[in-house]
Amino acid sequence: MSAAAPSKSGFFDCRDSFAATIEALAEADPRIVTVVSDSVGSSKLGNFRKKFPDRMVNVGIAEQTLVAVGAGLANGGKVPFVSAASCFITGRALEQVKADIAYSNVNVKLIGQSSGVAYGELGPTHHSIEDLAWLRLFNNMKLIVPADPWQTAEAIKAAAAHDGPVFVRVSRMAVPALERPEGAKFEIGKAETLVEGTDATIIANGTMVHRAVAAAKTLAAEGISARVVNMATVNPLDEAVIASAAETGAIVTVEEHSVRGGLGGAVAEVVATTNPVPMRILGFPGFVPTGSAEWLFDHFGLNEAGIADAVRQTIARKK
């Protein structure tokens, strides 16, 4: 079933961080429960089930009920983490996410697992490159796309601490731990600048962040100073960081998502209505052909070389 890249040394599957964090949170807070749709293994919640058998609700392959049961559990005083493949928890249950969670404004955490094109060759039915565009319309729902194991753990803790609906998009794609300054903190709605730069800004999230950092290093060798911002929260956006990015005069966004309506669309809304500068949105154009996730990244230029090219071209459009 898994089409994830083989894990290599120094690379991590962020689902492990999710699982370890939710187990630790559940130890401390008896209100925390998990809700799954036969998605125990794919959510890496097998250990949670062993530790807290009465605090896992498995509704079977029934995503509408999965999400609605989360809403009901919140009504009953629980803090439910509802976890399933991102393509199904969003697309299959979108009206439940809208009416039962967002519009009802309840304290439910939706965990979209194996998001983006992680399922590779299984194809667009199992890809989730539309989820952020759909969910971004629910203004009160926090949307977090963590980039590495540390940020995944922090995002899950922040989601538990926040009283209200949160969606955390978790990848099964192997990613390295990002280098951060000592004492780095995660806060919902705050972006982090990983590489300083003045000629252009790359705004990325999730699995694309480490690729953006690599591209900035390539560009630096050519004398191009590219800033890298990890915009882990897609809603609410860190508009101050976007305003600062616009001051570099060129912005390239990179995401494991459709180029329509995701991170790039969100950033473009801010840039176009405040300080228009040349922009490029990197992502997938729509349904993608057959290929592994890594092959798809390379095919659509979502890699070090492709991001660096996009930065050069966007800088060239500066007036």
């Binding site: 609700v57 609605a68 809403a71 009953g76 439910p80 009416a99 009802s104």
Partner: peptide, 26 residues
């Protein structure tokens, strides 16, 4: 208790409420 209007939403949400009560033996 929950925002309804689109049909078929009440029973699944009520199911979650009842499960919360069952977990707590309320």
């Amino acid at each position: 208790e929950t925002n309804t209007g689109p049909l078929g939403h009440g029973l699944p949400v009520a199911t979650g409420i009842a499960i919360a009560g069952q977990i707590d033996n309320a």
